[in-house]
Design a protein around this nucleic acid. Structure first.
Lengths: 139, 139
DNA sequence: GTGAATGCAAAACCTTTGCAACTGG
DNA sequence: CCAGTTGCAAAGGTTTTGCATTCAC
């Protein structure tokens, strides 16, 4: 048996191996619904795997993101954040507390149709970001 | 006479002064329709004002952006870019050559209505970014 | 005159990289 | 077995900061 409910098989492709470190990083992203930074992931993983290094966390996150099993979320110049939510969605960024929330696209919303893409250009992906104050901070 | 066609008055607000450095940085952003990075602005300004420092360019760009007369454009983890186009628009980023192009929003497009903003949250601004290959690179 | 801005260098910061030791398939 | 991965430390690149000097208003 090469996997179970706790250790599901994850195909990283490209000859990449599923190491304990990568599995832990992945697990942390699945457990936490927030959008942790690499350092936050590092601290969390370190509790269970004290020998892991920050560089390895960066490498794991990069591998997982390249494999398409997690997403990297960039907010301005702040440290990159990572999430395991692969469904199409936008991000809300609170300018006061820094929290990043997933926000769904409304049914039928077609971001691609809202902009005049240059003639001849090809589109790979869209990103919609909203800045403001989250419910907690808006009070 | 405190200004002319070449040196238009620009109110930076907040007791900020219009220095020659800030004026040059601003002029460069208005002349170039592309989206230069701080280093590119630095090199361009340096031709006319050889004593300016990179730190000052960063400070000027920050002041101008805070005053709302230019906009900072962030593309993933790449160096920040700056533009003088203040009209509402989105950005197209070429994944091959790195170029950033302004793209207009289609008439009647309401990005704010395409997402389900969390109840109780306030919205300050929207950002729409498109990744892909520009007309030149797509060929 | 005076508080703000410049220029320089050094620091801060996030992230990547080089490399020897190790390990998953 | 052996290419791929780890962990450490050191480097990398962008942006910020401390401070004395200079300047705009």
């Amino acid at each position: 048996m090469s996997s179970n409910a706790e250790n599901p098989p994850i195909d990283l492709g490209g000859g990449h191996r599923m190491t304990p470190q990568r599995r832990e990083v992945y697990e942390v992203l699945m457990e936490h619904k927030d959008h942790p930074t690499a350092t936050e992931v590092f601290m969390r993983v370190k509790e269970r795997m004290p020998t892991i290094s920050l560089a390895t966390v960066y490498n794991c996150l990069d591998t997982l993101a390249s494999a398409g099993v997690v997403k990297q979320v960039n907010v301005d110049r702040e440290p990159s954040r990572y999430c395991g939510n692969l469904t199409p969605h936008a991000h809300f960024h609170c300018e006061e507390c820094g929290t990043v929330l997933d926000i769904d696209l409304k049914e039928g919303a077609e971001p691609a149709k809202a902009v005049k893409v240059p003639r001849g250009a090809t589109v790979d992906r869209f990103e919609v970001a909203v800045r403001g104050h989250c419910p907690k901070c808006a009070k």
